[in-house]
Amino acid sequence: MHFAVLTVVAVFITCGVYLLLDRTLLRVIIGLGLLSNGVNLALLASGGLGAGAAPILGHGSAAIVDPLPQALILTAIVIGFGVTALMLTLAFASYQSQLSDDLEDLHGRLDDE
């Protein structure tokens, strides 16, 4: 199992970083989403991918999986949503005011002020 999951992590992060370095704004945002998905999965894997029940106590004495990464990931997912929403808003606003989604058109320099 761990080999399959690690492969998914590697592919998610590779694709995410590649998109993050793009010059089209939407692709950057998609890249960021992919990257955070990959990191969330990496966190889960760091807790081990052993056999076990969900971390709900009181259902017999079966071993349960590590709950801590799950708590971390849960908030990370929601924060990731907040980040995505903010990025989308910025993309929307910058397109509305600059009429471009090309980051190399949008860049501002210190001298331009």
């Binding site: 929601v78 949503f81 907040g82 929403a85 989308l88 808003t89 929307f92």
Partner: peptide, 13 residues
């Protein structure tokens, strides 16, 4: 907070 955040964003966008 979660409801407020998501709904604010939804309405804004």
């Amino acid at each position: 907070v979660v409801v407020g955040n998501v709904v604010t964003v939804l309405y804004a966008l």
